[in-house]
Design a protein around this nucleic acid. Sequence first.
DNA 1: CTGTTAGCGCCTTCAT
DNA 2: ATGAAGGCGCTAACAG
Lengths: 384, 384
Amino acid sequence: MLPVTYMMKHSHSPHEGRPATMEDLARATGLSKMTISRALNTSGYVSEQSRKKVIAAARQFNYRLNYIGRNLNQNRTGMLGIITPLEGLIGTYYFGQIVKGIQSALIGTDYHIAHYDSLSADFNDGEKCAQLCYQKRVDGLIVIAPKRHDCFVKTFAELKVPLVVVGGAPRDPRTSFIDVDNFGGASSAAEHLIDLGHYKIGFVAGPKTLHDACEREMAFRKTLARHSLRVNEKWVIQGSYETRKAFHASLHLLSQRDRPTAIFASNDLMALGVLDAARIIGLSVPEELSIAGFDDIDAATNVQPQLTTVRQPMQRMGRKAVEYIMELVAKGNQERHLIHQKLTAQLIIRESTAQARKTTQTTGQARGVDKVPFSHFVTGTSGL
Amino acid sequence: MLPVTYMMKHSHSPHEGRPATMEDLARATGLSKMTISRALNTSGYVSEQSRKKVIAAARQFNYRLNYIGRNLNQNRTGMLGIITPLEGLIGTYYFGQIVKGIQSALIGTDYHIAHYDSLSADFNDGEKCAQLCYQKRVDGLIVIAPKRHDCFVKTFAELKVPLVVVGGAPRDPRTSFIDVDNFGGASSAAEHLIDLGHYKIGFVAGPKTLHDACEREMAFRKTLARHSLRVNEKWVIQGSYETRKAFHASLHLLSQRDRPTAIFASNDLMALGVLDAARIIGLSVPEELSIAGFDDIDAATNVQPQLTTVRQPMQRMGRKAVEYIMELVAKGNQERHLIHQKLTAQLIIRESTAQARKTTQTTGQARGVDKVPFSHFVTGTSGL
DNA sequence: CTGTTAGCGCCTTCAT
DNA sequence: ATGAAGGCGCTAACAG
């Protein structure tokens, strides 16, 4: 009786339960492993006859390429690490679109995505994340909109791993980043409102903790200043990038006697809140109130009136990040060429902004809800 | 002059730029690769002296374990595949919490998460996903709330890969799943409202395309029927699991002459919309309108009044899924023991539901907004 | 066009 | 307590 090992090594069909290897195919076809490899990868020269035999055997044994073997040979993992706050990924259009861009750029490559939570204790600083590369769990890293740059990105500068930050550009120039030009985008929105003749302009700010929110606010303020317009702090709402809070705050703001004729919300979700509030109050948009947002989320074109907003090229950021990382990985990360990109955000003018009315006098009595026919907003749900 | 290969194999320090291997450490310490391995993995016997030498050399050469090598040896990938609609993941508390549960269960294991989009053409059916296992890109798969069971989960039954569906339990019993008992949870909420003396109960439905939304609606209807209560179809709002649409529809519903005294929304986001609408209309909650939700999202305890709701053990589902998959993987997936779990959803009674008033007459004039002091809702923003 | 050799980095097995 | 041999599955490099 032959020993089991002999059986396993020399039987013509793979042992039941064990997936077939190239070696199995080699034995079955009487060819060598190399010919099998070449045939399956369509690389190098293989006779048509051999190729057919290999294909047939592969089908018969239900062969699948084992990537662990290939990866060891090629010293790569085929994994691209995405590092993002889980609580952020989940819940915002922004992160979703960036990831979507990354995914789309990965189609056709044999790269897959590994996901890590920057809020977890295991991945909350650069050193820990770099381990993923050192230990060959991933080939490169894309950090999406890190919240804390200090303990996170700073250390990356020294770690020599293929890495790029997307969104929330770090201050440290020794790290590559791809971001959107929040300042420019917000400026163009403010500029647009001013061009329309508005000079009483309100603002809905995003979370102070987020860099892009700050940039947008800064842009708003500077643009008004450049046009010698004063920012009325009573018209600046502190929002949180979400609809409800902006809605309630707007109710308050818009019911004031002295209210703005235009509002720039630093993201679309909040702009929707302003829009809802205006509808409740009975202010027609854009006739009595112009509203501009930021992001160009799906809902922006699904409301009535459609939202004037600033489009961020989120997916493009994701794609560019992949291209950059792939390039670094391909070059073995030898040339440490950094990139610092700020993609332009484009103003999209739709229906929610209009010329300021000459007649709009702030001295006019602010309309309370009681002046509005109830049907006005109850029936106005078509735009949802 | 010695050939380069000799240099590389026999120099005492690893070639510059190439990460150190155990072989490097072996040469540097004069020990064998095995001793290095044992020392670094604290497995088997190693003398204290040797261990120290190894540790020192590892530190000196900045050695990191190469997982590709280990994985090939152990025929595993250390990757757990998570398959979810990207557009879904992104955007809902639900997906986020499940993933969070998965993440937490993975801490301490050396498993990482690979993420795949079930909406992508590459992973939109069972066969394609199973390839990930066959090709050894992942060791197991967790499918989160697949939208389409037909082309997706059905095929899984035959594919013999470690797989479990979390949320959106498939009809096919040959697939393992872990889900929450939507029917039971929704029933208890409806029961609760009935117990409080309500008999005019409205409902905000979720998307018809989602299984859990259907289950909750079914439970609502059956529970009312069991108590011989008629469901007034005018009080059933077709929502989409999001706040705004529910808000606007509720404005309409609650301003009717004949309106319900209680509303059960099939998720919390929509319950918030109902709450906002009630506030606008001027109905006090819970005195004039009881509201119950489903999910127990963070906001449920951050509004005024706090929301009565049904808590889904989302994180626990994620954790259980991991435990199950790990077990399968550990056993080499030999015993194909299926699990079909429905975790109970717990009713959490808070402030948004109360005893039905005897005096609440539906014949009473529905209050229009014009009857409400404006300050009523403008100042009522504290609960946000 | 095909095969042989060798090695990726690790760990299991068996020997010492 | 340590080492030697060998193999996981694949492919580059070189021979034929």
